[in-house]
C-alpha cells in the first residue's frame, strides 16, 4: 500500500474546495487497494471531516490558530513531526499562492525535489515513481519530471485541472489531531502575520472562476474596455485581461492573465481583442472551451480556440448582449 498525502488549505475557517481537487488527484494515482490517502490540514477549520467525505482515508488536523497559512516555517515543522513517524511516497499541494509558498519552503527544509504546477500525474505501479508533467517554456512543451532522491515525491498541481470527487456521506471519517510541534509557536511568532484583508474591488476570484471574459489591446482605450465589464456582469463572469490592457491602465493587475499574471483554467474563456502573445496563451491554454473574437485572421489565439470569430468587437459586443437577452447566468456554487 502506497501512501499519498495532500496539503489541504482553508478559506474563511473551512476546508478550501481546491483541497477536494487534490484528493481527486491523489485517488487517481491508484485503486483504493493500492494507495491510501491522507490530508494534512494546518490551521483551524470547522469541517475537517469534509476531506474524508471527498476521498481522504485520514486527516491530520493541526488546528492551532498559529498556523494561519501565511507563515511557512511552522507548517514545515508540522510536516517534519509527521515525517518523523512516517513518510508518504507522494505529497501534493495546490499551485495556489498558499501552496506555492508552503511547499517550496517545506521542500527546501526536507531536501525534497519539487515540481511546480503539474497538469498530469502518474504513479508507476511497479516502482512507485511519480511522473510529474507540467507545461514548460511558456506552455510550448510538456516536460515530465521525476524525483530522483528523497521521499515524498512532491508536486504542486494546477487548480481546476481536475474535478473533485462527488461528496460521499457514507465514507468513514478519521480525523487525528496533531499538536503544535516544538519550535512551531516561535516560528509562527516570527511572522509574517496578517494585519488586514482587502477584498478586491472588482474581482471575486479570477483563479476559481468557471467563466472568464477577457479583453486586450483591441479595445483601443479604457472607455472601450467598459463594454467588456457590461458583458461580464450580464454573464456573471470574471474579467481577465492581457498584459497590454493592464499596462495601459485599463484594468488592474489582479485581472492579468499570462506568464507575468495569473495562470487560469476556467471552463470557458471568451476573449475579445486579444491577439495571443505566448506570454498570454501560457496563462489560459488549458481552459475547457476557448472562444476568441479578433479582427486579425492571423491572430495566434485562433490556433488555440474552439471557436474563432473574425470580426469587430465593437460591433459584436452589443449584438452578443442582445442575443443573451433571454438568458441568465446559471446558478453556481
Amino acid at each position: 500500500m502506497r501512501e499519498v498525502w495532500i496539503l489541504a488549505e482553508t478559506k474563511a475557517g473551512r476546508v478550501a474546495p481546491v483541497s477536494f481537487e487534490l484528493l481527486a488527484w491523489a485517488r487517481s494515482l491508484g485503486s483504493p487497494e493500492e494507495i491510501s490517502v491522507a490530508a494534512v490540514l494546518p490551521g483551524p477549520a470547522a469541517d475537517p471531516e469534509e476531506l474524508c467525505l471527498h476521498g481522504a482515508d485520514l486527516v491530520y488536523h493541526a488546528a492551532d490558530p498559529a498556523l494561519d497559512g501565511l507563515a511557512a516555517a511552522p507548517v514545515a515543522l508540522v510536516f517534519g513531526s509527521l515525517f518523523a513517524r512516517r513518510r508518504p511516497e507522494v505529497l501534493l499541494a495546490a499551485a495556489t499562492t498558499t501552496g506555492r509558498t508552503l511547499l517550496p519552503y517545506l521542500a527546501a527544509r526536507e531536501g525534497l525535489g519539487l515540481t511546480a504546477d503539474c497538469t498530469e500525474l502518474e504513479l508507476e505501479r511497479e516502482t512507485g515513481v511519480l511522473l510529474q508533467t507540467r507545461p514548460a517554456a511558456g506552455g510550448n512543451i510538456m516536460a515530465t519530471i521525476k524525483t530522483t532522491r528523497g521521499l515524498p515525491q512532491a508536486a504542486t498541481v494546477r487548480p481546476r485541472s481536475r474535478k473533485p470527487l462527488a461528496r460521499d456521506p457514507g465514507r468513514p471519517v478519521r480525523v487525528e489531531m496533531v499538536a503544535l510541534p516544538a519550535g512551531a509557536a516561535a516560528a509562527a511568532a516570527r511572522g509574517p502575520r496578517l494585519v488586514e484583508e482587502l477584498p478586491f474591488a472588482e474581482s471575486k476570484g479570477l483563479a476559481d472562476a468557471p467563466l472568464v471574459v477577457a479583453g486586450g489591446r483591441g479595445f483601443k482605450k479604457k472607455e472601450g474596455f467598459a463594454l467588456l465589464e457590461g458583458l461580464a456582469s450580464r454573464l456573471g463572469a470574471e474579467i481577465g485581461a492581457s498584459r497590454e490592457a493592464v499596462d495601459r491602465g485599463w484594468i488592474e493587475y489582479p485581472h492579468q492573465v499570462g506568464l507575468s499574471g495569473r495562470t487560469i483554467a476556467p471552463d470557458f474563456y471568451l476573449a475579445f481583442g486579444i491577439s495571443g502573445a505566448i506570454q498570454h496563451l501560457a496563462g489560459m491554454q488549458t481552459a475547457g472551451t476557448i472562444v476568441a473574437v479578433n479582427a486579425d485572421p492571423d491572430a495566434p489565439i485562433f490556433a488555440l480556440s474552439d471557436l474563432a470569430v473574425r470580426g469587430d468587437l465593437f460591433d459584436l459586443l452589443p449584438r452578443l448582449a442582445a442575443a443573451l437577452e433571454d438568458y441568465r447566468p446559471a446558478a453556481r456554487s
Binding site: 525534497l112 507545461p135 512543451i141 516536460a143 515530465t144
Partner: peptide, 19 residues
C-alpha cells in the same frame, strides 16, 4: 533532486470552428 525525463510537444492547436 529532480530530473526531466521526457519532453513532448503539447497539442497546442485545437480543432477550430472559424466564423
Amino acid at each position: 533532486p529532480t530530473r526531466v525525463v521526457r519532453i513532448a510537444s503539447p497539442r497546442l492547436t485545437r480543432e477550430t470552428e472559424s466564423l
